[in-house]
């Protein structure tokens, strides 16, 4: 068999499978959704041909039951709540994830590998199953309340389930490994002699942490924040199972449009909006990464 001699052609052929996979499984579905979001909705589900920006208009303005077009903040509230909860999840993951990552880097190589392996173990089970486990932990007759009740410490239920706190707990739990791993990766390269040097120069523990460790771990922290934020903002399982569904989140809102509301274009429009948020987050990361590169020369 004759291999093409031109290196450009060879590179193209070598990358072709990857391009095809990305094209077919990522770009194409998104393009379909984008096209659908500009079409008319079919009352039986699906879309009808015709171009309209109706779906995007609906995000901000809607006809009320007196047939007047009015500004409608419903969807902005849902979007705001989703972003807020995602930020809480990021913050929670950072608080719990950083010490864990730091602890791991301070161990012997062999122990490090073992601990990293343990961090990834939850990924071996389905997310749905793991979230159901939290129902058993948080619910009225669950693992936390039952012993407290039988010891007589509490009498009434703590009502932990079906609250925003439960959703945040579920999100932090689900995505914690995504925070630990990148922070570990950047802390692992950290030269601890720098920390010792800081102490030699009379830096307190906090100063050494703030001015030496954090700046050097920054790429990992940013990557971790992005990795947690992106799936959290569109999360569907935790808000649905642990939040009691009383407050809609973006993921549930999109699901509702494709299922019972049979408004595919609007579902597509919200999905596009969600995609825009994610892109903004990623671009921001890209920019700060480039800035760091320039700073470090």
């Amino acid at each position: 068999m004759n291999l093409p001699q031109n290196p450009a052609t060879r590179r193209f052929l070598g990358l072709l499978p990857a391009w095809l996979v990305i094209g077919i499984f990522m770009v194409m579905p998104m393009m379909i959704l984008l096209v659908f979001s500009f079409m008319e909705s079919d009352p039986y589900g699906g879309v009808d041909p015709g171009f309209t920006i109706e779906a995007y208009r609906q995000i901000l303005f809607d006809l009320n039951f007196d047939d007047e077009l009015e500004f409608d903040p419903v969807y902005l509230i849902i979007i705001g709540r989703s972003i807020l909860l995602a930020l809480i999840a990021v913050f929670g993951c950072l608080i719990f994830g950083f010490p864990v990552a730091y602890y791991i880097t301070r161990q012997e190589r062999r122990v490090q590998n073992m601990l990293l392996y343990l961090v990834t173990i939850p990924f071996w089970t389905n997310l749905l199953v793991r979230t159901y486990a939290w129902i058993l932990i948080l619910s009225g007759d669950g693992v936390i309340e039952q012993p407290l009740k039988s010891l007589g410490i509490i009498e009434n239920s703590l009502e932990m389930m079906y609250t925003n706190g439960a959703v945040a707990t579920g999100l932090v739990y689900s995505y914690l490994p995504l925070m630990v791993l990148p922070i570990y990766a950047s802390l692992e390269k950290l030269d601890f002699r720098l920390v010792e040097a800081a102490h030699d120069l009379y830096a307190s523990r906090f100063q050494a942490f703030k001015q030496v460790i954090v700046p050097l771990a920054k790429p990992g922290i940013i990557a971790g924040c992005i990795l947690v934020f992106v799936p959290s903002v569109g999360a569907f399982i935790a808000p649905d199972l642990l939040g009691g569904g009383k407050k809609l989140m973006l993921g549930s809102l999109i699901h509702l449009q494709f299922a019972s509301s049979r408004n595919w274009p609007f579902g597509g429009a919200i999905a596009m909006l969600l995609l825009a948020f994610v892109m903004i987050a990623l671009l921001w990361q890209l920019r700060s990464a480039r800035k760091r590169m320039e700073e470090s020369g």
């Binding site: 809609l248 549930s252 809102l253 509702l256 408004n263």
Partner: peptide, 20 residues
């Protein structure tokens, strides 16, 4: 029953508002 578009849209609006 299989209802008209106006009904489906109105129900969606009521429900989304309810769970906003």
């Amino acid at each position: 029953q299989s209802c008209g578009e106006k009904y489906i849209k109105a129900v969606d609006k009521i429900w989304t508002k309810l769970l906003q």
